[in-house]
Amino acid sequence: MLRNLIATLPLAIALAVPAVAQDSFPDRSLRIVHGFGPGGNADTVSRIMAEQMSQGLGEPVVVESRPGAGGTVASGYVAGEDPDGYTMQLLVGGHAVAAALYNSLPFEPVDDYTFLSTIGQFPFFLAARAGEYESIDALIEAALADPGSIVIGHSGVGSTQHLTGELLGLETGAEFIHVPYQGGAAASTALMGGEVDLIIDTGTVIRGQADAGVYDVLAVTSAERWPDSPDVPTLNETVAEGFDVISWTALGAPAGLPENVEAALSAEIQRVLAMEDVQAQIAALGASPRGSTGAELQALIERQIAVWTEVIDTAQIERR
């Protein structure tokens, strides 16, 4: 009896599934893939989104980490998946950097994607040991007076932080020595120990030391002053007019997503981003929660690819 019941089960499911699928997306679990280690910023943002989207969509959203080669392993994987909306990717600012930095990628950074929405945007801050430089102008002046005297520690070759430092050199004409560390925390330790003179990193890396008076925050890389630190001047208003670097997290999916699926996912993302809890969690990670249209996200990425390509060319950074 039981065996008979079980035997008919696949048939029953087969009959039931298409009926639902025709009028409702989604009818099974979805995935958010990202290219970084568990517990990192990308992973945490993915989990925050996945948890809320599961409830809104009525199907579980699973987070999958496929780390490697600065996130490009995951991108190559997602770009090859079916554009059915069940596979999404959490993209970060490094996506635009990778497009400029790698000689050959197993995917097209723009054309292989249906972009959905940004999630959070955040700038980088420039910090020096407290009392060493009165202002960002003083630091640039010192760098111009004695080329190569100022050492910038960054979180790895080809990181957005590194390229931002190179861009600062190009825009101001100052010559810096750029030294790579294994991650922002190691660069911060080097600043504290006196080995480097300046670091450029996110608020989460810098704020703890700044609050304790160990660091002076000299400037922010966004075009406008950042809401949570209104006293910090921008590079744009001080030493490098037009300087505008922000990084971001966003959601995308393989190119060719059906319009109704794209609309359903975008609407769900905007709903989640409007939630107070989610806004607080994203803000705790040092970002401003900001949604966007897919077209706005695509424009942002295309603009940044152009900027980083120029920086990499001019600074003669080795392409991979």
């Binding site: 945490t44 989460t204 704020r207 703890g208 030391q209 609050d211 304790a212 160990v214 969690q281 705790a284 990670l285």
Partner: peptide
């Protein structure tokens, strides 16, 4: 810690 709204640093 950060998710709990505490910024780790020398002031902790």
């Amino acid at each position: 810690l950060i998710l709990n709204g505490i910024i780790p640093g020398p002031r902790l």
